[in-house]
Simulated scan of single mutants.
Amino acid sequence: MTDFTPEQIEAARLAFARPAVFLQGAAKIEQLPEPDLPEVAFAGRSNVGKSSLINALTGQKGLARASNEPGRTREVNFFLVDERIRLVDLPGYGWAKASKVETRKFQNLGRDYLRGRVNLKRVYLLIDARHGVKAPDIEALDALDLAAVSYQIVLTKADKIGPQERQRVAEATLKAVSKRPAAFPRLVLTSSEKGFGIPELRAEVLLACET
């Protein structure tokens, strides 16, 4: 966990205060937009809060469709921020109420995206702070390492636990990924509901897209 300067936080706030729009959904790899802008992708279990986090980052509650039914995302969804950065919502894993064939289909789409996207700057792997790294997350970590894509852990719903538990989960999570080759060496604790960690995550995204 790294402190950003007030200038970096403000630059990120301004970038994400500018218009953010839903660009498109892609059900097939051929439907992906041209790789002409930097992208960051959000991955995680179906109920980890990806849509809520994207909405919190952009300050637009209805931008990404949050659902009470886990596993609704069947496509790779693209959102354009400030006409210069794309946020990518990948299909969730675990708990999807779909057949095994259908589940495999949209999860393979996510893997294909990870492997072949030359403009992908970073993947943010969302993990519920209340539960830490679970078996389905290990599978996702393995897939990210295999794709050789830089990824960073974001702990969500951190407002649901106390400060000491947050610290414990953060340390345990960092330890769990410390020897993984593609893992970024810091994480972000967030709460979409309370708003903490959101300014820092915006700064992380901006920094990743500028490198």
Rank of each mutant, 00 (worst) to 15 (best):
T2M: 15
T2H: 15
T5P: 01
E10W: 14
A11P: 00
R13A: 12
L14C: 03
F16S: 05
P19Y: 11
A20Q: 05
V21Y: 05
K28M: 13
I29E: 09
L32E: 06
E34Y: 12
E34L: 13
R45V: 03
V48C: 02
I54W: 03
A56F: 08
L57H: 01
L63A: 06
A66E: 05
A66R: 08
P70F: 06
G71F: 03
R72G: 00
R74T: 02
N77H: 00
V81W: 06
D82T: 10
V88L: 09
P91A: 08
P91V: 01
W95G: 05
K97P: 01
A98V: 07
V101T: 11
V101W: 13
V101D: 12
V101L: 13
T103V: 00
N108Y: 11
L109M: 04
D112Y: 12
D112N: 15
D112E: 15
L114V: 00
R115A: 09
L120V: 04
Y124G: 02
D128G: 01
A129Q: 01
H131Q: 13
A135I: 09
D137E: 01
E139A: 15
L141Q: 09
A143I: 01
D145I: 05
L146Y: 15
A148M: 14
Y151R: 07
V154D: 01
A158H: 02
K160D: 00
G162P: 00
P163D: 12
Q164H: 13
Q164W: 12
V169H: 06
V177L: 10
S178I: 08
A182I: 04
F184N: 12
S192H: 01
E193K: 11
K194D: 05
F196T: 08
R202W: 09
E204D: 15
V205C: 11
A208T: 04
T211P: 07
